[in-house]
Computed example of a mutant assay.
Amino acid sequence: MFFARLPLTMTGVTLTLYVVSDLGRGYGEAGIVGAASTLGTALGAPVLGRCIDRYGLRPVVAACGAASAAFWFAAPHLSYPVLVACALPEGLLCMPAGSLARQILTALVPAQQRRTAYSLDTILVEATFMIGPAAGIAAITALPATLVLSGLGVLFGLTSLLTYLQNPPIRDEGEPAPAGVTRPPLRSWLSGRLAATLLVAAGAMFCLVGTEVATLASLRSHGDGGWTGLVIVVMCAASMLGGIVHGGVRRSLPQGVLVLLLTVLVIPVGLLEQPWWLLMLALIPTNLACAPTLAATTETVSSLAPPAVRGEAMGLQDASTRLGLAAGSPVVGFAIDHASPAWGFAAAGLGGLLLAALGMLWTLRDRPVKFPALAASVRARR
């Protein structure tokens, strides 16, 4: 699944540079293509998860692999309007490598060790984001676009084929196979706590993508753009270190505390913009909470979702993170355009905190009464 995620992390920058350089369009028009693909992925993740729950892994992986390979082989031969039109269905049928990896880990790993497994998975996600975008930029700037985009099609097809042949389990040994499972009603498992966890995941991703945008804007505004790569690597390394600690301890902080640390610690970063190395150091504390927050939300989703709908629940988690990503960039970008990069950090933290707070309030609303005897006496008097 690490290799299945790699081409996914390469597509954004590769497609953007292709639209700008080879098709002669602007960055805004390139963003439309990316937004259509992201929207398709957000809409398709829970649907594909539900199909996995019902039909099993192989049919879904085969269909997604064929669709992705076909799109990327055809992309260099499409005009811009056709490329935009095809981006949405491409996102809809993109193999849900993230949610699928978490579903497989849930089936393979005992419950008491899942936090460690989810932390390791999140660490590997950080590794793909350290490798994929850089590899995509290097490829599209040094090689013909047709070769690069077709190469992405080969990668998508190959990783889908390997996943199909490996056919990892999506249920543990004590759970029935997809064919013998009756799907429970949506209201019976999409509880307030699960919905709150999805909001926490969206808030975390809003904060993370907003922090990246603000970091890039801050470095460029002070003429330190050449240090961007090093700063991003240090941010990813801090997140990986946090994931190692989160997965290694016996008892970790709950997801509410983790997302609070993630969002609050980034708000004052704008006060430490200069010099660039001070900004880099200021970003370490918030990124230490990045991987633990994402791993904690996965742990909560896996514990709340029944096995029969685990794929759909993991797909909803994917959709919530995608929506957080889609909202974070324009909101933080607006704050930067109308104020300064320093306010971008504040917008990233406050926006993520708002979404997470809505989720935590939802959890408190559904919390049972702590004093049942007192509650019973009150009802009796009524």
Score class of each variant (00 low, 15 high):
G136V: 10
D172M: 00
S160E: 13
T146E: 15
T163M: 14
G132I: 09
A134N: 01
R183W: 03
I137R: 11
L165D: 02
R183A: 09
T163H: 02
A145V: 10
G153P: 06
T159R: 01
P184F: 04
P185N: 02
V154I: 15
P176M: 00
F156E: 14
I140L: 10
R183S: 09
A138V: 13
A135F: 11
P178V: 07
L162F: 13
A134I: 13
L165T: 07
T163G: 05
Y164P: 03
A135V: 12
E175H: 14
L158N: 01
L165S: 04
I131P: 02
T141R: 12
M130P: 00
F156C: 08
G153Q: 06
A134T: 13
P133E: 03
E175M: 09
T141A: 10
Y164V: 08
L162Y: 07
D172R: 10
V154L: 11
T141K: 11
M130C: 09
A177W: 00
Q166K: 11
A142Y: 08
L143H: 08
N167H: 13
G180V: 00
V181L: 05
L155S: 12
P168Y: 02
T163F: 08
A135L: 15
Q166T: 14
P184L: 01
I137M: 11
G157L: 03
L149Q: 13
A145R: 12
A177N: 02
Y164G: 05
T146V: 13
L161G: 03
Y164H: 10
V181N: 04
N167A: 15
A177V: 05
S150T: 15
M130N: 00
L143Q: 05
A135T: 11
E175C: 09
P133T: 03
T182M: 02
P133A: 03
A145I: 11
L165I: 12
A142D: 04
P133H: 04
T159M: 15
P133K: 02
L161N: 09
T182P: 07
L152C: 08
P168C: 00
A142T: 15
L165E: 03
L155W: 13
L143P: 01
G157F: 08
P168Q: 02
P144C: 11
E173K: 05
Q166R: 15
L147A: 15
T159K: 00
L155Q: 01
F156W: 14
G153I: 07
P184H: 01
L149H: 11
P168M: 04
G132A: 07
T128L: 06
P185H: 04
T159L: 06
S160T: 06
A138I: 10
P184D: 02
T163S: 06
M130L: 15
G180Y: 02
T159H: 04
R171P: 02
A138N: 06
A134K: 00
L155A: 15
V181Q: 14
A145C: 13
T128K: 01
I140E: 10
A142N: 11
A138Y: 13
G157Y: 10
V148K: 12
Q166A: 15
A179L: 03
P176T: 04
I137Q: 10
A139H: 09
P178L: 05
A138R: 12
A135R: 00
Q166L: 14
F156I: 03
V154G: 09
G136K: 07
T128S: 14
